[in-house]
């Protein structure tokens, strides 16, 4: 649980859907829910004996990788010590600085240059699910689906409307590999300044390498995407089919939306307050009902949602889904 506070912080700044939840949650609530999730996960693992073989394989391959890394580390430490001795020798004091020993990458680099534990990565990914789907049947939601993300050019997945900046970065040649994804996950706006992804970033490099290991499973050979689709999740609030089926009146939605735009900027800027333009209709409707029923705790949003009828929520969703 050493990483739980790091997780909590990233949830606070995290995706729009998660943002509201974090306001009212204490770290204790979060830990309790994390504990529930872990208990469920443990139950799942215990139930599926067939998983054990795979896990054992994975464990032995991780062990092998670990011993490789240990060997590399020992070699690197030795090289560094040798170089330090050389530097201390009288001849080396006048040496060209270019010949100084390079900082050892294994020791100095805190970025996730290696894949971590995919099972733990799946848990870390929970906070991404409000916006991103992955696995069999995954579709674009608030964010694009992440099947086949490795090797994909940034902003290039057909059918998803990216921010201008993301498209520009893709055009400039940004491709999603372990290093670029690691940098993006650490601080999205540092890599793509006006990305629509409203997420503060994962500061813990272990979280990032674990999540990258999880994502990697859905990229190497997409035909091997597991049958148990992680997208089969219950909605945040149960809504009657007729509520979801309401076709929103976009004109009315535009008027109602003028109230939202006092805070939520239409151009997708999201400093302190998330962007809500171009959300899929259903996600918008579910989120607003979650505020209306006070499942999501943000007081301003609860107040705004409290007086909106089902038709008005549908109207807003219809308007924002198409808003430029």
């Amino acid at each position: 649980m050493a990483h739980s506070s790091g997780l909590f912080l990233s949830v606070i700044g995290g995706a729009a859907l998660v943002l509201g939840v974090a306001y009212g949650w204490t770290a204790r609530d979060y830990r309790a829910s994390e504990l529930d999730a872990l208990t469920d996960r443990l139950g799942q693992l215990e139930r599926s004996n067939s998983d054990w073989a795979a896990k054992a394989d994975q464990a032995s391959s991780l062990e092998a990788r670990l011993s490789e890394l240990e060997t590399e580390l020992a070699a690197a430490v030795k090289a560094a010590e040798d170089a330090q001795q050389a530097a201390l020798a009288p001849v080396a004091t006048v040496a060209d600085p270019l010949q100084q020993p390079a900082t050892n990458p294994v020791i100095a680099d805190a970025s996730a240059s290696e894949f971590g534990n995919p099972a733990r990565g799946e848990e870390v990914f929970a906070q991404c699910r409000s916006c991103h789907q992955i696995g069999q049947g995954a579709t674009d939601r608030i964010g694009p689906h992440l099947n086949g993300i490795f090797g994909r050019r940034a902003g290039a997945h057909d059918g998803f409307r990216y921010s201008d900046d993301m498209q520009m970065m893709g055009a400039d040649g940004l491709t999603w590999e372990i290093e670029t994804l690691d940098a993006y996950l650490e601080n999205p706006k540092a890599l793509v300044s006006r990305t629509r992804m409203n997420f503060a970033g994962l500061k813990d490099s272990q979280d990032r390498s674990d999540i990258l290991a999880y994502l990697r499973q859905f990229s190497a050979s997409p035909q091997n995407i597991p049958e148990a689709a992680p997208t089969a999740q219950a909605r945040e609030v149960e809504l009657a089919p007729e509520v979801l089926a309401i076709v929103g009146d976009t004109d009315y939605g535009e008027y109602l939306a003028s109230e939202c735009k006092t805070c939520h900027q239409q151009d997708g800027s999201d400093r302190g307050i998330p962007s809500i333009t171009q959300w899929p209709t259903e996600d918008f409707v579910v989120a607003m009902h979650a505020y209306k029923r006070q499942i999501r705790p943000h007081p301003v949003m609860q107040m705004m949602a409290s007086r909106l009828s089902d038709e008005e929520i549908a109207a807003l969703a219809a308007y924002f889904a198409k808003a430029e």
């Binding site: 606070i12 900027q265 400093r271």
Partner: peptide, 23 residues
């Protein structure tokens, strides 16, 4: 209220300032 919530509230106010002035 805890410090994290107060900080988030402050950051939200900056978002609001940018929102209302562009509105």
């Amino acid at each position: 209220e805890d410090a994290a919530l107060r900080k988030a509230t402050y950051e939200e106010s900056i978002g609001w300032y940018e929102g209302i002035t562009s509105d």
